[in-house]
Design a binder for these strands. Sequence first.
DNA 1: CGAAAGCGCGCC
DNA 2: AAAGGGCGCGCTTTCG
Length: 637
Amino acid sequence: MRALAAAGAGRGSPVAVVPVGHTGVALAHGGTTWAYSADPAAVLRAVEAAFSPRWVWWTIRGTGSLLAGAGDDRSGADAGSTGRGLRPAGDGGTAPALCWDLAAVHRVLHGGRRDDPGAVWAAVRGLPPPPSPPRHRSDGQLDLLATIDESPKLPDTGDAGRVGDDVRADGPVGADGQLRPGWIEETLRGTAAGGVDVRLARAERFAELALVAMAAQERTLRALPDPRVRPTGVPLAVLTARAESAAELLAHELARRGLPVHRPTAERTIAGIIGPRPRDETGRVTARQARDAPVLRHLGPSVDLRSPLSLRAGLAAVGIDVPDTRSWRLTALRGAHPVIEPLLAWRRAERIATTYGFGWLDDHVGADGRLRGGWRGSDGAAGRMTADAGLHSLPGDLRVAVIAEPGYRFVRADLGQIEPRVLAVVSGDPELARATAQDDLYAPVAARLRVDRPTAKVAVLAAMYGQTSGAAGQALRQMRRTYPVALAYLDAAEAVGREPAAPAGVTRPPLRTFGGRRIPLPVRPDGTDEADGARDPERVNASWGRFARNAVVQGAAAELFKAWAVTVRQLLVPLGGEIVLCLHDELLLHVPTERADEVVAATRRALDATAGYWAAGSGVRFVADITVSERWSDAKS
DNA sequence: CGAAAGCGCGCC
DNA sequence: AAAGGGCGCGCTTTCG
């Protein structure tokens, strides 16, 4: 550690880290590298405590196991990990504050999902992406670094090989300039030929390359068109990169931490909807038949309610002709036939039974009463966070079971009308910016459009989603006259999205969000892309147009939300609180009861600080609704 | 046979 | 004339 200090590490200075299995780690800072083969997590803790550096990693996957807390690793989410690492916020230890996730920043710059080290390296070198590394997971995620979680541990002593020839003769970069896939894998798994010293020396080299890649990414971010330099002197895209990196860290913590769920309440709630937990397979079949019976009484026993095809035919047989069987379509036919009502009830119950039933509880709620699923800091489209295990689609009925633990409260904070406010910022529409002065933005919009509030809301949402039919279409024309700057911004995005092909030889700048994230659009040289080749080209283009129109708003909103969330994450550390859920425009915090008021204030401060730089100069106001409660469902919305 | 697509729906 | 974005999940049907 003294060596690191001597080398000039200080708060915010980059320190790259590469794990080698679980008992080896290499750090790089400036022109110096260090390798450790014993208790690497302790090394990281000490460095964090002493310097608060900006941690640089190729990706949180794999590296994250080093960050797992020592004291409360009860999750199973890091099963197989030795569980030693930087302590998470809330248990009195240190949480890494600053980081740079090369994979996350790569996705910001280039779009898409691919973010393995080989792809990141190729991009910073201006090379074409190399072939994808082998997949290790059944879900299709590229997950090379995760392999270290299953790798054999490095012995701490003995087995000391020669540092030397085999390292130099087998370097990381091939003749084509690409990282050598085998080298990456061997380095991360710690399976390179030779002893501990050899393997750690390789990791040192990999850490040095991480610093090279980081510098290149930051240069690229600074060189993006329309730099939007913030009051701190830093372009917004660089701030986006930092926030997106921290969001990956937050996602990792959310996956480990889980959402508090009161199991008995959850069991009772589910039973109240679909009946008691079946004892065995026979019981399950019986319960299923009992659910189906009230509907099949009208349709006959041969109809398979779970097959849309069969259901549609069955409905037609009783005189109900529908193009599909979606519930909004059936709702419109309420009263037309006695089957509709029980069918809709069946759908709701079936949802609970299949997706959010006892099986779901057993699969995802741990013995500690925490609902856990995987989290990712950004999706492949506009960059929202995603979560598994139904964490982002928990039915309202089940939220009564999300109960704070004894001595704790939830602080629920959600951003009001974030998307239209974001639209005001990114488009620079002065009239829409004026409307954001109100707590309820739709009130002044309704006044200006001379429609009622519900119509105004539909019109605004329709403008952002690309809907033009129905009542929304009428109000949309009025929107266009009243907020021409905002609408022109959306129209421009749509035009890029639906443009099937740039003129030959002309490359257009890619579509980016306000914060600089590249929005992935398919290359369609002849008006279609491979996946949609069979579909009507105009429909395909229109669809991509709507996607782009929405993505510039949804994506920018996601960036502001995440920048806010990671700021809250930091402010919660000294208050002993934790973020337990991120829901696109809403944060759920689990905090000591006696600190709840302080957390509320800190959450507001975080929004003021974040919006202050993110929306600097726009005149746009952001508002948060913040409530304290014991149950998620009790927080007013 | 397993993988992928399509449907429908929960949430935002 | 019509044209609604994103995600994950479980089910059925179809593809290869």
